[in-house]
Design a protein around this nucleic acid. Sequence first.
DNA 1: TTCAGAACGTGATATTTATCACAAATTTTT
DNA 2: AAAAATTTGTGATAAATATCACGTTCTGAA
Lengths: 188, 188
Amino acid sequence: MTHHPLKKHIEEIIKLTDEEFEFILSHFETTNKRKHQYLLQDGEIADKEYWIVKGCLKSYFFDESGKEHILQFGMENWWITDYESFVKQSKSKINIDCIEDCELLYITFENREKLTKEMHKMERFWAKKSKFGRIALQNRILSLLKNSTKERYELLLEQYPKLFHRVPKKLIASYLGVSRETLSRLYS
Amino acid sequence: MTHHPLKKHIEEIIKLTDEEFEFILSHFETTNKRKHQYLLQDGEIADKEYWIVKGCLKSYFFDESGKEHILQFGMENWWITDYESFVKQSKSKINIDCIEDCELLYITFENREKLTKEMHKMERFWAKKSKFGRIALQNRILSLLKNSTKERYELLLEQYPKLFHRVPKKLIASYLGVSRETLSRLYS
DNA sequence: TTCAGAACGTGATATTTATCACAAATTTTT
DNA sequence: AAAAATTTGTGATAAATATCACGTTCTGAA
């Protein structure tokens, strides 16, 4: 248990004793999902935040014309939920589906609140995670404003090369905000 | 002092006694800037977070071709800084300028760290502010992916009608990510 | 008040991207 | 292994947007 991947992940931000980690882990549950199964559907309230042990997921939504837009991919060691719905405990606008079979840990909203109060280290961990999440989103906006489609494609390829072996190109296109045809022509 | 606008602002999230607010305020400084003056230049480290008492500002950056892109506008009761640079104390990629004469309060990075440690209420205030900031950015990405230029223009107009009297249309265009000519043709 | 610069609208044209259509290749399911 | 569904590439065309150009209006500073 000392070498649990979640411990390693948390320790990138905050050092923990084994006992502290055991205590944290006791607030989580495990679940497995198969490809095409969902974790969250729009209209529901996101009452869980998932940590991905193994697998690949997408969070996405549809516009009025029925086109799918990818908000975020999730892979090993990433967290995934609808952040707005989870934080506000409001109805979600997004869906989360498994792109591959997935092995997941999750913490419920209640347990996260509880753990935040019980353990100041975890309050700091989540505060820091929120800060970094905000920075990542800010940089994605910067990139959407500044970079051409081709540049955004190349940056994504550079940053997450694994993604391109695991998810269909049409989902990459949807993440970048272009049609799959346009994306296809970018590298042909 | 009891009715200080910053007190009112913080109390939208956390209730404070007058003494607590006095203590918080003692960590801030006041400054005034004139139109066209800057608060932050790219390459500098953002060592202050500003709270806007009065005035209007823009945070922006340039792409390789020299085109200006607006990341954020700031008006009364908003916070402004380069969040990434401030949090990481790293070199900023963005600039912040006054669009109007401005009356500002600011807290330095050191004082904010200090205040966070000294006063758990403020740790919670900033954590919550960070969460909401992240949610706002997520929604802006959703909108960039989902909505047409015209829709984004209308949403902005609806959400911040004041903005349109205060800032030139070319800056609105730059915020929306289109050329000023295209924006001009959207409503003519 | 005048003058210079900025803001704004608009035409003409080029570029980028979306959309529709279809066939080939690949993957998944039975 | 065969059948079905999905993914992918690509041509033709339409739509959206950028770019360049120029004249008018507005605004702020001398």
